[in-house]
Design a protein around this nucleic acid. Structure first.
Lengths: 335, 335
DNA sequence: CTGAAAGCGCTAACAG
DNA sequence: CTGTTAGCGCTTTCAG
């Protein structure tokens, strides 16, 4: 692979001059410039980003840590970051944090080794303490989908509690009194918050959720199916369901329908996330929109700002999910 | 950020020694080693991958270019690459090639600047010539979803023609005589090949596709809806549809059902890709499985082999899609 | 307008 | 077992 030296020699100039034309800085004679460019093309010269990064101490690189790229929610997140990366001519590095503190840490470490200027981190398993000390070490580090008080300026997050409340209000406004809750069984905050918000509203209506109608499972299609089966097995009345996410909601719908219940006429169901799937499913899923791509976009911008010591624009870091009314919920039909 | 020099000074040893403990090579006294490690932790030292890459001329980095991460098909591809990256402690760089030759080229160039050891390239818009010359320049470059004769050893691809044949055989075996074809309107090979294979089998049954029943649109959910409307507007008989991909198939299903046709009883429909969606849709979609994650895995492996001058194991580079029978196709019910 | 030279952080002989 | 040193490819003063 040709180096700057090869180009300089072939063009009969110094490497300083070549560097100037590469970066389009300083004064270079028009003839020299065009000659150098010609030689670069001839030699197929491509600058070495590693050498450049070493010298300048900036890598033009932005890292992202997510648990799993193939999950549509996280690929939207990655997409949001990628948009700003490519708009700034930066390169995106992707590391997967799987589902453990250990691999999250490893993923970040790889990114730090690469000296990413900015990093967008989705971490659910590392403790606040670890994250705070990471934040001290890495100026351009932004946390997404997580709120930590000590570093609140670095957190872009969604109000899950409020999400739960919105879902509850929607179902109750549709006159459903017997609500069920299909939750994720992951030991992280989000499921607790969504349930918390949901229950708060339910209680404010002087109602409650039958504890047999609160079931947990993996936050996946399959988990939703299993949870729905469990719900049906309880032989308790319910006319509406709040599912932790769209995947679970869709799994649940298929079980309900296979058991002869119509959605939404017999059972209304609302999901969370508004991933692509919710539009593809039939009936189309009513859900709460989680604007993850915008949030990721914002996070990436902000990470870059911090990394370059720009003061980020004042902006709201908390996002509120919004209700997307589609076909899977309807007013209670009285028997 | 602490450097190797800082660590050496603080530990009272030479940088060579520090380097040895970092890389765990050569002989280092047990006491020295543990002391150095302690200092590294104390200083929060993280080696600089750029400096290392510059020196060793290996970046431990694998690049991928895909048009769009948020598309589930491509995120599966990325996921396949990521698996091998993390298993080899390499870092994955992702560049999006959008949908134009220009941006594909730009994406690759960014990866070359980063001196990725291996690159998995999904290109549909660059010409064979350009790709071949790229291949000459970059040893660890593998093409995925593309076949180019001159560099056939570097191509991991799916036999789209055969896919069309399999779909046709399936529909015809179900006794459908009036088949429709919803195709992608992209000017790339895949749509032509799938149609070609499909028609070959149809003809071999002494049948043909009514040309009014061949419609094109964007290969998306929306495109599938529009195509289905167009099909319905033809007022021609058809009892089965082969859709270019799952997204189009699902879009078409929703239009058919909204117009009072039952799938599969009135209209059978088969998709292509077997992306996650196909399991989530109702009825569950019969489709052709495109083993993109395995292919990407294979491609990444092979790219790494080539980049390190290992001779890759002899292996089949051509993949054949396989029929996944679910609920959206059924035997023709005679009126 | 152009060149010489230092040095970014690291690895890998080589010498001891 | 440990240290010295050259140099990877590039940018950036500083001279000229």
């Amino acid at each position: 692979m040709a180096t700057i030296k090869d180009v300089a020699k072939e063009a009969g100039v110094s490497i300083a001059t070549v560097s100037r034309v590469i970066n389009n800085v300083g004064k270079v004679g028009e003839k020299t410039r065009s000659n150098v460019i010609a030689i670069m093309n001839k030699l197929g010269y491509t600058p070495d980003a590693n050498a450049r990064a070493l010298k300048t101490q900036k890598s033009s690189t932005i890292g992202v840590v997510i648990p799993d790229i193939s999950d549509p929610f996280f690929s939207s997140l990655a997409n949001g970051v990628e948009e700003v990366a490519s708009s700034k001519n930066m390169q995106m590095l992707l590391s997967t944090g799987k589902m453990s503190a250990e691999s999250e840490l490893k993923a970040i470490n790889l990114l730090v080794e690469q000296r990413c200027d900015a990093i967008v981190l989705h971490s659910k398993f590392l403790s606040d303490d670890v994250l705070v000390s990471l934040s001290d070490k890495i100026p351009g580090l932004i946390f997404i989908d997580r709120f930590i008080d000590e570093v609140s300026d670095k957190c872009i997050w969604l109000d899950n509690f409020e999400g739960g409340k919105i879902a509850a209000r929607h179902l109750l406004a549709l006159e459903h009194k017997n609500v069920a809750f299909i939750n994720s069984n992951y030991d992280i905050d989000d499921p607790k918050l969504r349930l918390g918000g949901f229950e708060e509203i339910v209680k404010s209506f002087d109602l409650s959720i039958n504890s047999k109608l609160k079931v947990n499972n993996e936050p996946t299609l399959k988990g939703g199916e299993l949870a729905a089966q469990e719900l049906l097995a309880q032989a308790e009345n319910f006319t509406s369901v709040f599912a932790y996410n769209d995947a679970m909601a869709i799994g649940a719908i298929s079980v309900f329908e296979d058991n002869g219940y119509k959605v939404p006429n017999d059972i209304s169901i609302i999901g969370f996330d508004d991933v692509l799937l919710s539009k593809y499913s039939r009936p189309k899923l009513t859900t709460l929109r989680y604007p993850i791509a915008e949030m990721a976009n914002h996070a990436a911008q902000r990470a870059i700002d911090y990394s370059s010591n720009d003061v980020p624009l004042k902006s709201e870091l908390k996002y509120i999910p919004s209700l997307v009314k589609r076909e899977s919920t309807t007013r209670l039909i009285r028997g």
